[in-house]
Design a protein around this nucleic acid. Structure first.
Length: 601
RNA sequence: GCGCCUGUAGCUCAGUUGGAUUAGAGCGUUUGCUUGCGGAGCAAAAGGCCAGGGGUUCGAAUCCCUUCAGGCGCACCA
């Protein structure tokens, strides 16, 4: 928030070093000072200057000692600029300490004036599409899908708040061998059946898939008879896929009806998570256009057509002249002419850039598909697609269970719906114990806010690259570094403000500020930069860590510094406004994390 | 075999892109704090050779090399 002032000081520092006859040490970078209760920014520029001097002198110099000397000389030459209390040389660092009373008021008023927009970045021209929520249809939505949907949604929110126009895209896998497998089993064993209820139908399809896979997978030590039966089943399945591909009306109808069962469930869950998708792409819709791309790749000599004996392939490494295996060889069309996942992603990229005019396209897909995306983007590049370099795969770790990876094939999954229900139950139990006077009407709402919040936070407070081993007790904990802890800080602030009545008019923080007040104000100034960092690095984790720090500091402040019973009207007014600013910032940060900020709990 | 990723406290994880008193949190363990703005809280203790070994640098958990351990991927699944 104080970039201009700091840039001004930086200029003076560089001028002072030049006057001392030192080589240009490069850019002055500021970082917060690590001392609690003091509010300042420091730079290590004197280290750089001393090191540069030592290099040019070509003789042995004690760099830390020389750096401290320089820092002291610079401090002696400079007067603190307006708004700053003092400049100090400390362990070779140059530290600038803010004049707390004037800046404290400035920060708090800036937050309260901007309100829900506090932290929003300047508008940027680059339009970004974020693709996430790509579960396969004909399956039920499990906890791994939830991580994907949340990561994508929060990335979209953060990018948007950082200043980018964002389009949210979903790409359900509504066709492919997996989907056909379910249609085959349904048609053969369960034709005409249909359980009642949105989630029941979804879970039922999952059960059918597990059964079908068991019938189609080679078994250990199977008899020749069993193997023959399996081969016959597989032939039936392939034939069904061929009929789908040819547009057989009966197959298409069965496919449409069962697909709608899944999409209904998906839409309901996305609504529960407060996710509103702008554009829906379906794999089935890019199926035909993708085949035209393959024809073009063949025509240009990029792809090799081995049909009917083999598939159509692109030998990527060979085309790039690489000798080691890196991108390898990719199959872009089956020998029977049906398309693959990779084929469709080529067509989808074209649609995104040409029909939706985006400037950057982010794919939120777990890391096991890294090679797939490297291949897809590289083929696009070879093909001469101009925006190939604007495609980014946001890879993240997957969600496992203590007993191993989740597997739809084995029916070993934890369904999102079950976790959410359990979360609500647990919050209700805590309310019963801690806040029994809470009106029944708001209990359900609070249970959803906290239960879902806990789940969401547990998924977003881990770095993208890390796998998450899912356990109920970890994901649905309400103590410590969790959403309810953060939400509780918001509730406490709300409670204080409610008791105070109207917010007093702005005052100067013209008193000896408590160390925790200084820390809170310091944290407030860091929010806008945190939003930008989270957007630039695709890391919701920055947001999750920030909001926890803010909540934690507020909890401490709450215990140590009385607000309503403050020692004077000025202190009381200042702390009330600070409390309001913290509450606003907590709410803004939680909103970016797709977590609700309740006023009571 | 080749490629990508990971290794920090008993467990789960941060570490602001190479900086600062003593590497930080949460859970768990031990101990204090409620006639007090809501205790889903606060304060404190114990717990570390940052996987091992080299190197670069004034300075390394962070960069480079290497060894070890684990995960994932590698031609017609998505």
């Amino acid at each position: 928030m104080f970039e201009q002032e700091l840039a001004g000081i930086a200029g003076h520092i560089k001028a002072a070093l030049a006057e001392l006859g030192l080589p240009d040490p490069g850019e002055v970078k500021w970082q917060a000072t690590p001392f609690a209760g003091q509010w300042g920014q420091g730079t290590n520029i004197c280290f750089q200057a001393a090191a540069a001097e030592a290099r040019s002198a070509g003789r042995k110099v004690n760099v830390p000692q020389r750096a401290q000397e320089l820092a002291q000389q610079v401090v002696a030459r400079l007067a603190p600029p307006p708004g700053f209390a003092r400049l100090e040389a400390d362990k070779a660092y140059l530290n600038a300490y803010f004049d707390t009373p004037s800046y404290a008021a400035r920060v708090v008023e800036a937050v309260l004036t901007a309100g829900a927009d506090f932290g929003r970045g300047p508008a940027k021209p680059e339009q970004v599409m974020v693709e996430y929520a790509q579960p396969n249809t004909h399956h039920s939505f499990h906890i791994g899908h939830a991580r994907n949907a949340l990561l994508g949604e929060v990335l979209a929110r953060v990018l948007q708040f950082a200043g980018y126009p964002v389009i949210r895209a979903s790409y359900p896998g509504d066709i492919g061998l997996g989907v056909i497998t379910i249609l085959w089993a349904y048609d053969k064993f369960y034709k005409g059946q249909e359980p009642a209820g949105v989630h029941e139908r979804g879970q039922w399809l999952l059960k059918i898939y597990a059964e079908a896979t068991a019938l189609l997978e080679p078994q250990e030590g199977e008899t020749a008879e069993a193997a023959a039966r399996r081969a016959a089943f597989d032939a039936e399945r392939r034939e069904l896929y061929r009929r789908w591909d040819a547009g057989d009306p009966a197959v298409r109808e069965l496919w449409r009806v069962t697909r709608e069962w899944s999409l209904e469930e998906l839409r309901e869950i996305l609504a529960e998570l407060d996710i509103a998708i702008d554009v829906w792409f379906y794999e089935s819709e890019v199926d035909e256009p993708s085949k035209a791309i393959v024809d073009d790749l063949i025509a240009r000599g990029l792809a090799e057509d081995q049909r009917p004996a083999g598939p159509v392939v692109v030998k990527i490494d060979e085309k790039l002249g690489l000798t080691k295996d890196k991108y390898r060889t990719a199959v872009v069309l089956r020998s029977d002419g049906t398309s693959l996942y990779l084929t469709k992603d080529l067509a989808l990229a074209k649609v995104k850039f040409e029909q939706y005019h985006v400037d950057r396209s982010i794919y939120v897909v777990d890391f096991r598909q890294s090679l797939h995306f490297q291949q897809a983007f590289k083929i696009l590049e070879l093909w001469g697609f101009p925006q190939a370099a604007k495609c980014h795969h946001l890879s993240y770790g997957y969600v496992t269970l203590p007993e191993g990876g989740m597997s739809a094939r084995r029916g070993r999954v934890v369904l999102f719906k079950d976790v959410a229900e359990e979360a609500y139950r647990r919050v209700h139990a805590v309310i019963e114990e801690k806040n029994p006077e809470l009106a029944p009407a708001v209990r359900d709402q609070v249970a959803r806010q906290l239960g879902l919040g806990a789940l969401v936070y547990s998924m977003l407070s881990v770095d993208n690259v890390k796998d998450i081993e899912f356990r109920y007790d970890d994901a649905l904990s309400f103590d410590g570094k969790t959403a309810p802890y953060i939400q509780n800080a918001h509730v406490r602030a709300a409670s204080i403000l409610r008791k105070a009545g109207a917010l007093p008019p702005p005052v100067n923080f013209d008193y000896d500020l408590h160390a925790l007040e200084v820390e809170l104000i310091d944290l407030l100034t860091r929010f806008p930069a945190t939003v930008q960092a989270a957007a630039n690095e695709y890391k919701p984790l920055h947001m999750a860590n920030y909001v926890y720090e803010l909540a934690k500091t507020f909890h401490s402040f709450y215990h140590e510094a009385p607000v309503l019973q403050a020692e004077s009207p000025t202190v009381r007014a200042a702390r009330l406004r600070l409390t309001a600013a913290v509450k606003q910032t907590l709410a803004n940060a939680l909103r970016l994390l797709a977590i609700q900020a309740p006023d009571v709990m």
